[in-house]
Structures are given as structure tokens and as C-alpha cells.
Design a protein around this nucleic acid. Structure first.
Ligand SMILES: NC(=O)c1ccc[n+]([C@@H]2O[C@H](COP(=O)([O-])OP(=O)(O)OC[C@H]3O[C@@H](n4cnc5c(N)ncnc54)[C@H](O)[C@@H]3O)[C@@H](O)[C@H]2O)c1
Ligand SMILES: NC(=O)c1ccc[n+]([C@@H]2O[C@H](COP(=O)([O-])OP(=O)(O)OC[C@H]3O[C@@H](n4cnc5c(N)ncnc54)[C@H](O)[C@@H]3O)[C@@H](O)[C@H]2O)c1
Lengths: 213, 213
DNA sequence: CCTAAATTGTTCAATTTTTCACTATTATTT
DNA sequence: AAATAATAGTGAAAAATTGAACAATTTAGG
């Protein structure tokens, strides 16, 4: 790969483009211009072209992009041409909601197991997904070749769960706990912090920030 | 307010600082330096000082920041000195998980009502929060002076719910549906897109992106 | 009281990201 | 076949963000 350092914002937009293209494809639309993509996802047309230009030339000048084609290219770029087995740690309200959610499967993410410490939850099944005790974590990660883990335990345990995942050679962690956790630099970490999102909104309200879309 | 355009990243870091300070305060810690905050939340010390500098001078040179004091200042900046009534639209798995979650209340967000179209869910209570039919939305927003709405309905209905919220004078929307929705520029909108987050991780894994923390 | 250590606030430089404007290419029309 | 219109790709400019360096201020110790 010609890794020229891709802005993270670019990657997240690619993910959005991809979903938009998928919708267009289902509607049977064959070609689309950068301007129409831009309009559809709420960014600038130059931005769309620049984002794609990091990875190659996917369009035809004067014509636009072939929807199916571009979609496939983006899926490839994002690593979504294969399925990703995922484990969820914490079978509470959030963990359960994630398990019941179809949207992940549609994008190639497969929750293969949940884990919890609560004896009442262990060995139960949620939508066909078994909740295991924590001792099984290592075995299942190895057996199912799991690369990604989702942390949905209370914040005070988030770091220890992260450590455990790291010890079991997980490559990436999505953390929902409102905690700052540290992992070795070779492990990918993203935090989804819902309070932060709400608080950006309150900040904007009280400071009367004009949207700039 | 001396609105010099605050980077959104700054606002989200303020939210994280605030939680960190709250933890320190509970531990009885009186003063802290920018370097320690930086260490605690995983950013640079200069970044911390720069973020705060947008809003005033809160520290004492040679000494650091008073924890309680700084915390109060940040809460004020974020608009968290008053409680925010919130409505959640969509009493499904995610909406329910959000309702059961204490973390929001702790930060001053109060879910005052949920809304759904499913007759089986309407009039049920979840953790003391009633699920109302959609017709009640306007009345309750007005009555409870709700400024923020959370969208937790399937993607295909997200736009119409957003429109409805806007029509009822909501100020800010947090959208969980994987849909691009449009609102007037005076309405604050944030999207929490979990698939995007997972896909940034897969991108990083397959492209071997080194973390830079 | 003076000096040294600590640490903030701030300026300025570096970097990153976005936007703009232009060039090249393709398709279509006359 | 030439002219026109549409639109991708791209390099340069602009804007936004981060990072490093340092001057200013406070406290503590001799
Ligand atoms: N529910 C939400 O809407 C929501 C929103 C934002 C953030 N979060 C965060 O997500 C996390 C989970 O939230 P939740 O609402 O599902 O909480 P929850 O209490 O419903 O579930 C937590 C689960 O983790 C399990 N658990 C506790 N310690 C564990 C450990 N050491 N190892 C394995 N499992 C353990 C518990 O048994 C429980 O089943 C929390 O950190 C919360 O702050 C939740
Ligand atoms: N569950 C998750 O973990 C998860 C994760 C990421 C994103 N999301 C997104 O969040 C949204 C909700 O997900 P969910 O898992 O809770 O789905 P869900 O199907 O469990 O719940 C959706 C709820 O919305 C209600 N609803 C449908 N149309 C409505 C309308 N027009 N007005 C009011 N209510 C309506 C339904 O009756 C249902 O109760 C979806 O857009 C989903 O893609 C969910």
C-alpha cells in the first residue's frame, strides 16, 4: 500500500459514501457524479474527489463514477470485502442492543460471542449469540480468529478489559465506556462517547454556534 | 460571548477534561497541572492549555489549576450547569438502552419521554419513562421545554422524525440512525454512526496504520 | 530578599485538511 | 469533424489545527 497518511475524516467519509452508494445501487442507479454524491451526503464535491484521489482514479472525466464499481472499490479500501468476527464484552443494556442490531451484519461485522461476569447472564443466548464467562475469552478469540472487540462494561472495568483483549492479540477495540483507556500503539482504539456528543450539542446551543453545512 | 470560533475538537476535549476533573475532585485532589490533565486524558499539555485559553485564564502560573474551580468553569462553558430535558424517538433496543443508562443523568441530561409508533410499546414505561405516541410529541416538547431530541428509529424514518422535531422547535438533534439527514442551519445536528466507527478500525487494521497517541 | 523550580498563557511555526481554480478527458450535439 | 457541455483529477492557495518554544508569574527554599 502506498500509505501516504490518509486523514481519518477521509476514512469516515468513505464509510458514508459507501452506504450512500449501496443505496443508489439498490435503486438501480448506474452512474453518479462527485457533485451528486456530495449533495447526497452533505459535503463538498471537491472533497469527494480528493478523498477518492488518495486511493486511485475511479471515475471517468465528463461522465462520473460507476456506482457498483466505486462501491466495490470503497468496500475494498475499508477492508469490508471479508467478514469480521467481533466479540462484545459486557452483556448489559448496550451490549445487548448491539447484539440485536442487524446493521453491523449488513456491513460485514459478525458478533460471534458476548462475555460477562454476571452468572445470571452467562450461558444465556441473545439472538443466537451466547454469553460466555470471561475465562472463555482467549479461546474464542483464537478459535474464531476475532480481530475486533467491543467494550460495553462499566467505565471502571474498561481498562482491565482492554488489557485482557490486548493480551489476547486483538487488533482493534471499540470502546463505549466513558473512560480514557490506554493500549499499545499497534492496537487500534476508538472511543464512542455519547455524553461527549450530547455536550457538544449543549455547547453549541448555549453559544449559539451557527451550523456550517 | 467572545465567539472566536472554537474548534469542535476543543469542545469534545473539554467534555473529556470535565469528566476527568470530576473524578479527581471525588478523589479529593485540589490542584492539577496541564501536564497531568494531558497525561490523564491522552493529549498534549499544550493542547490542554490552548483549549482552555479560548475561554479565559483559569490557572495560576507556577501552580496549576484548582480542580473544583476549573471543573465548574468547564461545566459552565459546556452549558451543563442546568439540566437538559431530552426526548428519545424510537423505543427499540437502542432507545431503551439509552433510557436505562444513568450516565446521561449524571451529566445533566434528563430523558423526559420516549416516543414510538408501535402500539405494543405506547403507554408502557421504561425505568419510569413513559413511551408516548407520536401525536404527543409537540405537546410534551412544549410542556417540558425540551431542547434536545435523540433519533433512534430505523434509518428510513430518520429524516421525517428530524423534520418533526424541527417543526416543534427543537434546538439540537443527536441522530443514531445510519442516515444522512438535513436540518435548517440553526438546528444543531450530530450523528453517531457506529458502523463508521467500526469501519475506521477495519481500515486501520488492513492498512496497518500506526496509532499516533 | 534573591534565586531556582514549576507551570501557565501566548506567540509563532509546522502540519494537516479543506477549498478553489484550472486542466484533461469524455460524451453529445450540430 | 468541430464545437460544446459535463465532470474527474490535481496542484496551489487558504483555512484550520496542532505543536513547540518561551516569556511571565507564582511558590518555595536558602
Ligand atoms: N446504555 C447506554 O445507552 C450507554 C450509553 C453510553 C455509554 N454507555 C456505556 O457502556 C457501558 C455499558 O453500559 P450498559 O448500559 O450496557 O451497562 P450495564 O450495567 O447494563 O451492563 C454492563 C454489563 O457489564 C458486565 N460487567 C461488569 N463488569 C464486568 C467485567 N469486569 N467483565 C465483564 N463484564 C462485566 C455487567 O455484568 C453488565 O452485564 C458503560 O460503560 C456505559 O457507561 C452505555
Ligand atoms: N441497536 C443498536 O445497537 C444500534 C446501533 C447502531 C445504530 N442503530 C440505529 O439506531 C436506530 C434504532 O435501532 P434499534 O436497534 O433500536 O432498532 P429497533 O428496531 O429495535 O427500534 C426502532 C424503534 O423505532 C420505532 N419506530 C419505527 N418507525 C418509527 C417512526 N416513524 N416514528 C417513531 N418510532 C418509530 C419502532 O417501533 C421501534 O420501536 C436504527 O436506525 C439503527 O440503525 C442501532
Amino acid at each position: 500500500m502506498k500509505m501516504f497518511k490518509i486523514p481519518e475524516a477521509t476514512v469516515s467519509r468513505l464509510s458514508v459514501y459507501s452506504r450512500f452508494l449501496s443505496k443508489l445501487d439498490k435503486k438501480g442507479i448506474i452512474t453518479i457524479s462527485s457533485g451528486e454524491i456530495a449533495e447526497g451526503v452533505g459535503v463538498g464535491a471537491a472533497q469527494v474527489r480528493k478523498d477518492l484521489a488518495y486511493f486511485g482514479e475511479f471515475g471517468t472525466r465528463g461522465v462520473g463514477y460507476n456506482v457498483k464499481d466505486l462501491h466495490q472499490h470503497i468496500l475494498k479500501i475499508l477492508g469490508l470485502t471479508t467478514s469480521w468476527p467481533v466479540v462484545v464484552i459486557g452483556a448489559g443494556n448496550l451490549g445487548t442492543a448491539l447484539c440485536l442490531y442487524d446493521g453491523f451484519r449488513e456491513r460485514g461485522f459478525n458478533i460471534v460471542a458476548m462475555f460477562d461476569v454476571d452468572p445470571l447472564k452467562i450461558d444465556k443466548e441473545i439472538e443466537g449469540i451466547t454469553v460466555y464467562s470471561m475465562e472463555k475469552l482467549g479461546d474464542i478469540i483464537k478459535e474464531k480468529e476475532v480481530k475486533m472487540g467491543v467494550i460495553a462494561v462499566p467505565a471502571e472495568y474498561a481498562q482491565q478489559i482492554a488489557d485482557l483483549l490486548v493480551k489476547n492479540n486483538i487488533c482493534a477495540i471499540l470502546n463505549f465506556a466513558p473512560a480514557v483507556i490506554k493500549v499499545p500503539e499497534e492496537v487500534q482504539l476508538r472511543n464512542v462517547d455519547l455524553s461527549v456528543n450530547l455536550e457538544i450539542l449543549t455547547f453549541n446551543i448555549v453559544n449559539n454556534v451557527k451550523n456550517l453545512y
